[in-house]
């Protein structure tokens, strides 16, 4: 009985972590679909979201602070696209990825010098540090439900946006065939800006909801980006819903490893499984291999 509850506890903590990885992986996927670039600054969006929200929460009520943080970080995402990726048309994908690495370093440094190296956090949305809900015998912080609900709502809304609204469909058209989309009158450049903004907004939202649990710190971005990257690759690039499953798998795997092995080995388990999956399925679980022609282009 007791051990069963423990398993559930670990599982839920894995799902919580995993849902954050899933959100980061969705961000990777949105930008990857629009530009082919893996945006290594994705983790920095999460960090910035938390930082801005903590600062705003000192002056305005919490919901307003959250909305403000998401809006500001989305603006930052759009600006990055307009300042860099819109202008660098002739650069190869690898060069653009390197630029996102540079951006991630610079954003992190800006956060360090704008705020400081201290760890900070938002207040719990409901209850406080010690309040917990009983859930089939496992004790769960109410914030976990906030995280899970936020991620679930985000994923559903994103799905509806991409599937049923005009801008969402234009975005998908632009990623599946840019030249055809352009001929159909879609402004590809603006769609890319939208993808960056959306991805930054989603990252910032994640940064806000996890802030009470994991705290916000200027260096938190890079580890999240690596795990989110792993989740996106595990699911297969180009499919946001696969990214969600990938993220949950990474999170649960990590929690499971923590329950069985020394904590230092949780990343070893995750990446070992990831490597094995990649060696068996070179495009992740749900990724599609792209065809390639031998012609000079």
């Amino acid at each position: 009985m007791e051990s069963g509850n423990l398993e559930l506890q670990y599982f839920l903590s894995g799902i919580t972590k995993g849902s954050i990885y899933a959100v980061v992986a969705i961000g990777f996927n949105l930008i990857y679909s629009a530009t082919g670039v893996l945006n290594f600054a994705q983790g920095e969006f999460v960090m910035l979201g938390g930082m801005v929200a903590v600062t705003l929460a000192r002056f305005v009520p919490l919901p307003v602070a959250l909305a403000g943080a998401v809006a500001i970080v989305a603006l930052v995402g759009c600006l990055l696209e307009i300042l860099f990726f819109r202008r660098l048309q002739r650069h190869s994908i690898l060069h653009l990825v390197i630029i996102t690495i540079g951006l991630s370093i610079v954003l992190q440094e800006i956060a360090l010098h704008l705020w400081d190296e201290k760890v900070r956090s938002l207040p719990y949305f409901t209850g406080n540090e010690i309040s917990s809900l009983k859930f089939f015998g496992a004790a769960i912080s109410p914030q976990v439900f906030w995280v899970l609900a936020t991620v679930a709502v985000t994923v559903v809304l994103l799905h509806i946006f991409l599937k049923y609204t005009l801008p969402g469909r234009a975005m998908r058209a632009g990623s599946s065939n840019p030249s055809a989309a352009m001929l159909a009158g879609i402004n590809i450049a603006n769609m890319r800006t939208l993808a960056f903004g959306l991805s930054a907004a989603i990252g910032a939202l994640a940064g806000c909801v996890i802030s009470p649990i994991t705290m916000t710190h200027y260096e938190m971005g890079a580890p999240l980006a690596i795990k989110g990257f792993a989740a996106a690759i595990l699911g297969g690039l180009g499919n946001p819903m696969a990214a969600v499953l990938g993220g949950l798998m990474v999170g649960v795997l990590e929690a499971y490893s923590v329950s069985r092995l020394p904590a230092a080995y949780s990343d070893v388990t995750v990446f070992a499984v990831l490597l094995l999956v990649l060696f068996a399925r070179p495009h992740g679980f749900w990724g599609r291999p792209g065809g390639e022609s031998v012609r000079e282009h």
């Binding site: 860099f84 630029i99 690495i101 540079g102 370093i105 610079v106 440094e109 800006i110 010098h113």
Partner: peptide, 8 residues
């Protein structure tokens, strides 16, 4: 910060 800016 300098490294990142130089890189970009």
């Amino acid at each position: 910060a300098v490294f990142g800016l130089l890189l970009i």
